[in-house]
Design a protein around this nucleic acid. Sequence first.
DNA 1: TTTTTTCATACTAAATTAGTAGGATTAAAT
DNA 2: ATTTAATCCTACTAATTTAGTATGAAAAAA
Lengths: 199, 199
Amino acid sequence: MKLSKKGEYALRALIDLGIAGEVGRELVQVTELSDKESIPAKFLEQIMQELKSAGIVVAQRGKFGGYHLARPASEITIGSVVRLIDGPLAPIGCVSHTAYEKCSCPDEEHCGLRMLMLDVRNAIAGILDRYTLADVVEVTLRKLRRDALPLPFATPRSAVRREPVKSTVASRRTARTAVPRRLVPVEGLLSQLLPDYTI
Amino acid sequence: MKLSKKGEYALRALIDLGIAGEVGRELVQVTELSDKESIPAKFLEQIMQELKSAGIVVAQRGKFGGYHLARPASEITIGSVVRLIDGPLAPIGCVSHTAYEKCSCPDEEHCGLRMLMLDVRNAIAGILDRYTLADVVEVTLRKLRRDALPLPFATPRSAVRREPVKSTVASRRTARTAVPRRLVPVEGLLSQLLPDYTI
DNA sequence: TTTTTTCATACTAAATTAGTAGGATTAAAT
DNA sequence: ATTTAATCCTACTAATTTAGTATGAAAAAA
């Protein structure tokens, strides 16, 4: 039930971009991300490319370029990122919603294992499709502030000399107000750390 | 978040052994299992070997030999089987209970991703460690009976000419009475299909 | 003694994972 | 215009994992 390193790196980088947006930083370069997270720079470069192609991040080329989120962090679910990089969330193909595949078993309708794995897939998707980058950014910032630690990306590596590139939408809309919570049953550690968890 | 084919095959075979025990069949051979589930026989043979080494099944060698569960199906959790064959349930090492591994991130204590993945690992383990082979056997048999389908392993391939080999414990104790349900929150499809789900 | 099963070990082809390498392109600064 | 520093693009690769095959020995029943 593993998440690949690539998937982990993608999420780490995106969370960092979310944090950067939250502290007013407009662009972050691959080397900053790879330094902070100890990710091989060239590997992360590839990953950022995939995220760009998928429309999750936007790049600014050239000197003093870098990346930022293409949409508000509250509109990027963790599940969508994991699916993009690592494929379906379901443990076996015959219970995948996004990539169903008939399994080898003789009778899917009477397969107890399938029922069980459907529960697992729903449990995973219930979490990863519910939470967004904004949620993870929020708990991270909350913890850092609680312990009075310096926030990452607070000081731009090179002074902010760029015009507000395209739109500051990302940095404004990250607050979790507009997007309604989707489902009812809320449990787990993250939900307890988030302020407005509906029940 | 995939379960390997090997893990899937192991679970299918074990569920079949559980069903066999439930319908009074004492031994099942690899070829029967591999036929029924369309698993390459030699591959399944290897898998059964691992399950034997782990003390999950017991083998009877020689002509008219075969396998049966080493313990009551109600005492074999799905999680223990998946961990044996596929390793830890946790998506990343730093949230694994059974195989913790320090992750590359600079500060585990303030890592939002880790919190999230801990929720995921708890959700997965909450299901796979809660349910046993007996549960899966039960929903399977329930569905087959509901649709008036023939139960597998009801007719022994070769007549039952063997003495009650070691103990009939497995076939007697499979009823889910002795083992108490472990946790409180019960949801998902499987729990709804099981009769005595506590809440 | 034959048959039929598990047991044990070795091997392998294909896919996936986790990267490296090298340069082309773009844009800001000088 | 030239230099510098960033992303972009493509190809390659080493190691590991996955999903098996292959071959035969050992055991037990007939």
